Computed example of a mutant assay.
Amino acid sequence: MAKKQEIDTRHYDVILSPHITEKSTLLSEHNGVVFKVSNDATKPQIKEAVEALFDRKVKSVNTIVSKGKTKRWKGKPYKRTDAKKAIVTLVEGQEPIDVTSGI
């Protein structure tokens, strides 16, 4: 197990929710977990938050920023918000994170 870190409220501001899709569940077979994260979160902050909240050792963090689309509703244009996702890979031998259970 990873070294137990003190859980801080800022860790909950970094990781917003798990991103559960068919592709993200396939990643769990390869020690990967996908989270929706704050738009201004950095890779070291995400790594620290996952290690503190879930008590697992993180191997790597990859981030994806999907830009919001411009859409129209009743003839008026609007823009969907940008979203940032983090693909967190755990160290081999670590127990996978169960995102269906609460913290």
Rank of each mutant, 00 (worst) to 15 (best):
R80Y: 11
V34F: 05
G75H: 06
F35Q: 05
I15V: 07
L16I: 05
L26I: 14
V14G: 00
F54Q: 00
R10E: 13
T100S: 15
L53D: 03
T9I: 11
V34G: 00
Y12C: 01
V33E: 01
D55T: 10
E48W: 11
E22V: 03
E51R: 14
S60Q: 15
V91F: 08
V33P: 00
T70N: 07
P96V: 14
Y12D: 02
Y12R: 02
I15H: 00
K69A: 01
E29Q: 10
V99P: 03
F54G: 02
K85N: 07
H30N: 09
R10G: 04
P96I: 12
K59I: 05
A52Y: 03
V34Q: 06
D8A: 04
S101Y: 10
T21V: 00
D13Y: 00
V34C: 11
G68T: 07
K3G: 10
K84E: 06
T42E: 12
V58R: 09
G102E: 05
T9P: 13
S38R: 15
S38M: 08
H19F: 03
I97D: 11
R10L: 08
Q45G: 08
L90T: 15
R80G: 01
K43Y: 13
E6C: 05
V33A: 04
L27E: 04
S38A: 15
T25I: 03
A49S: 08
L16T: 02
I64D: 11
H19E: 04
A41M: 09
Q94V: 07
N62G: 11
F54H: 00
G93N: 08
K76F: 12
E6T: 02
L26Q: 07
E95T: 10
R56I: 00
E6K: 14
T63N: 13
Q5I: 14
D82P: 00
I103K: 15
R72I: 07
D40R: 13
E48L: 12
A83Q: 03
A2N: 11
E22A: 05
S66T: 12
V14I: 09
F35K: 06
T25N: 02
A86V: 10
K79E: 11
K67L: 12
G32Y: 02
H30W: 11
T9E: 13
K67F: 12
K84L: 06
G68S: 03
Q45C: 04
P18V: 02
K36F: 07
V58S: 05
E6L: 10
N31Y: 07
A52H: 07
T100K: 15
V37Y: 12
Q5N: 14
T25E: 04
I46K: 00
S66C: 08
K4G: 08
N31L: 04
K74A: 09
V65T: 13
D8F: 05
V14N: 00
S17K: 10
T42C: 08
E51D: 14
A52R: 04
K36V: 14
